[in-house]
Amino acid sequence: MAGAIGTFLAGMQYLFSNLPEFFDLLQRHLALVFVSEAAAILIAVPLGVVAARYDRARGPILSVGNVAQTVPPLAVLALAFPLLGLGYRPSVVALFVYALLPVLTNTIAGIESVSENTIDAARGMGMTENERLREIQLPLALPVIFAGIRTSTVINVGTAYLAFFIGGGGLGSWVISGINLFNMPQVMAGAVSGALLAIVLDLGLAAVEGRLSDSGVEMTQSTA
């Protein structure tokens, strides 16, 4: 116990004495997470809409998402390496692939959770398929879609540590090289800060999600 606390304190000390380097790593980590996540959202939401609308597209789309998620993240990174080389960009691609599924499944689930009656009423009132999607299904599905984005982002923060293996940088640099060098304070500094980052993002996104599902209805309105 005392040892653990000691290591933690040593880790914090390491962090504060290497603040400039820490901010560099953090910035890179955030860049990996946000860029890959944004790309995943941009692709997965429309794909989810297509899958929810066309039964025939649904199977293939879901299996692609599933495969991407089932392959261990390390393997995704390893696969990205021969195809795209080393560095930041292949890392983003690998993280993007890995982030797709939660957003995709939640988009489909969200759209399908809109009640039949609501759709029936919208149809009966003369809304076209696009109007139904834009004005009814997507706004009502938004909290569920957003929950998928939240899950995906939090997982992404953890997965991004592995980007170090193919030269993507980020907080993984401290953790992985720390393990190799038995530099526990360095491992601790990298791990704790990443954990905090995941928690902060989770709480922040949860707050947004909460607003979307109750009063946040107005938000949907103003953005629509």
């Binding site: 009656n117 609501t118 706004p139 209805v217 949907t220 309105q221």
Partner: peptide, 14 residues
């Protein structure tokens, strides 16, 4: 054509 159903089908986000 007005359309009313038993389940009403109001748009809960509006």
């Amino acid at each position: 054509t007005g359309y009313v159903i038993q389940e009403i089908g109001l748009f809960d986000h509006r």
